[in-house]
Design a protein around this nucleic acid. Structure first.
Length: 199
DNA sequence: TTCAGGATGTACT
DNA sequence: GTACATCCTGAAC
């Protein structure tokens, strides 16, 4: 079912971040339920030269270890004590770089995703909740029930319960580019246009 | 509709 | 002890 292969991630991180738009995340829960959503927003982080990256300058710690893994690995970490962020490792193994997923829209089992997010079904959501469903990295992980338990998973194997399908990428002209969010501390890197999204 | 403030735990000076 | 790739709530407009 056209799972993206390691070659897809084994490229320049900016190219991968752009190409991930429109792709479909598949998350299989322990009970077999298959959650699906389409990627609408991404950001690139490249340790080699990017002060916003956890592994800036090849900084290696227990947390950043996953960033040095082979391309196509899931890097998931805890942020602000209560939320998780999902990234896909890119480039050569040993080259710490990844794409952060910042936004998505549900394409299958949205009801279950709503349960994970708000503790109630799609029908019961307020307009405000519908509008702000998976439009943030923490929300996305909450909706797909992803935590550090899934850190380090190989995304190229369907058996791991987390993989990416080819989906339907947007026309290049529809892709918007801008500065990344929430990295004010990163000095010159705050202005890097490494965020990609589309409507 | 926007905005300030707080929640909360881990990583790492 | 401080910072953090965030999100929600409630108040003011």
């Amino acid at each position: 079912m056209d799972i993206l292969t390691r070659d897809f991630y084994h490229r320049d991180t900016l190219a991968v971040a752009r190409d991930l738009l429109g792709r479909e995340i598949v998350r299989v829960l322990p009970d077999g339920t298959e959650l699906r959503c389409r990627i609408t927003e991404t950001e690139a982080y490249i340790g080699r030269l990017d002060k916003a990256c956890h592994a800036y300058g090849y900084r290696r710690t227990p947390r950043t270890e996953t960033l040095f893994a082979p391309p196509g690995t899931a890097y998931i970490y805890l942020i602000y004590g209560m939320y998780h962020c999902l990234n896909f490792v890119t480039e050569e193994e040993g080259e710490p770089a990844a794409v952060l997923l910042r936004g998505a829209v549900p394409t299958a089992n949205g009801d279950r995703i709503a349960q994970n997010r708000f503790g109630r079904g799609l029908e019961a959501l307020t307009p405000y909740q519908r509008k702000n469903f998976l439009n943030g990295p923490g929300k996305l992980c909450r909706g797909l029930d992803l935590t550090r338990a899934q850190n380090g998973l190989d995304l190229t194997q369907s058996k791991n319960g987390l993989y990416i399908c080819a989906g339907q990428p947007p026309a290049p002209a529809c892709i918007q580019v801008g500065k990344r969010i929430g990295i004010d501390y990163a000095q010159e890197a705050v202005d890097f246009p490494w965020r990609f999204w589309y409507e």
